[in-house]
Design a protein around this nucleic acid. Sequence first.
DNA 1: GTAAGTGTCGATCGATCGATCGACACTGTT
DNA 2: AACAGTGTCGATCGATCGATCGACACTTAC
Lengths: 214, 214
Amino acid sequence: MARKKSLDQGPVLRGQILARASELFYERGYAATSIRDIADAVEISSSTMYHHFTNKQEVLRSIVVGFMVDFNAATLPVLADGDRTVTDRLDEVIRIHIEMSDDRRPELLVGNPIRYALSVDEQEEGIALQARYHDAVLALVEEGRATGELDVRDAGIATMALLDMLNGIREWYAPDGRLDREEVVQDYIALARNLLRARDTAGTESTAATAAAR
Amino acid sequence: MARKKSLDQGPVLRGQILARASELFYERGYAATSIRDIADAVEISSSTMYHHFTNKQEVLRSIVVGFMVDFNAATLPVLADGDRTVTDRLDEVIRIHIEMSDDRRPELLVGNPIRYALSVDEQEEGIALQARYHDAVLALVEEGRATGELDVRDAGIATMALLDMLNGIREWYAPDGRLDREEVVQDYIALARNLLRARDTAGTESTAATAAAR
DNA sequence: GTAAGTGTCGATCGATCGATCGACACTGTT
DNA sequence: AACAGTGTCGATCGATCGATCGACACTTAC
């Protein structure tokens, strides 16, 4: 086999590495995936990896931070949009949460072993990004409780229940299975309203339903 | 240091190994935990490990299967108890689920990387045990929908939402934090009733409330 | 045309991994 | 006293790990 042509493919290779590394980390875990596994999957040598990333940790860090930055960019503006009702915003965030964590499933790397693999600084960076989303959802739930749109005893617990419910989907949802994704989105919007005892506000109902159906 | 005394401590050492291994696997992940890490934590040599387990995989398998067997033994009889109302059974299972997954938190090892670490037979064994619990909860939700006690569009989706909501708790609940565990249990019982739109059945209400408060 | 910069590779490093082996201590049986 | 069975250990195996190095191909700038 001839030497791989070294035409400058710019940041393309870096993106390929991140994409394949995400999948391997997601399936096997970070520790069980070797640099050579990733290199083989992208059909490069292991040494080439080190021209694009300083070490294995940096590959993981890029994936984790990259996803969370995009995720927050998509959700935070919606959560903080004061012009819309709480229920309306909640519906849309649930849709974004489900669709984004399904579309980019392998990139959503969380859990203790992932944290353990990162340096202290990287841990704090990742946790801070997650906390920003968490706090924004919590603020929305508290706002809903204040306006009477939602009815929960403890906003903190209800928020965790909601987020865990949404985060669990990617572990069992299979696109080729019994369920259509839009079906899942609609059901989860309804389930979330049940969970938080969303009030059927007559004035905003049509608006929310329209947004939910998109 | 003198040679470790070899007084027969029966299955005690095996239990210690499993306990410490659980914690390390939970914190760092299976692949990132070496046989020597476990041995050091129990203060034995790595060779001694192999007199109690055939290999590293078998340690993981023992933990996973051991927990799920106990978990099913505690929950399945409740879920299938035809003499009680659906809501009543649901409340108690939620309590057991939360308390057991908190008490034995490190033993609850799940996810893709864990599956990847097990052999095909072991995977199927573990999945089968989890499926038995899942199916029993699903059957209860469907029963509740049939009797009118619960009101959900798709029982399968609602069941996954409920289970994910419960499984997420151990990732964030800290015993020394703001929340008392009994508080969490009570809130989740209420949240689950919201989620599944449990009907306030006049006849069984007092029974269910009593069971919930235990 | 030649020098600098970039990207890729094979070869290889020391460290660590899971697992094995023989030696030895202790207990209980005969 | 001799023996078998069990549990523990240090030493060590081959394999694989993350990471480094120098050599080489190719592009671009001058």
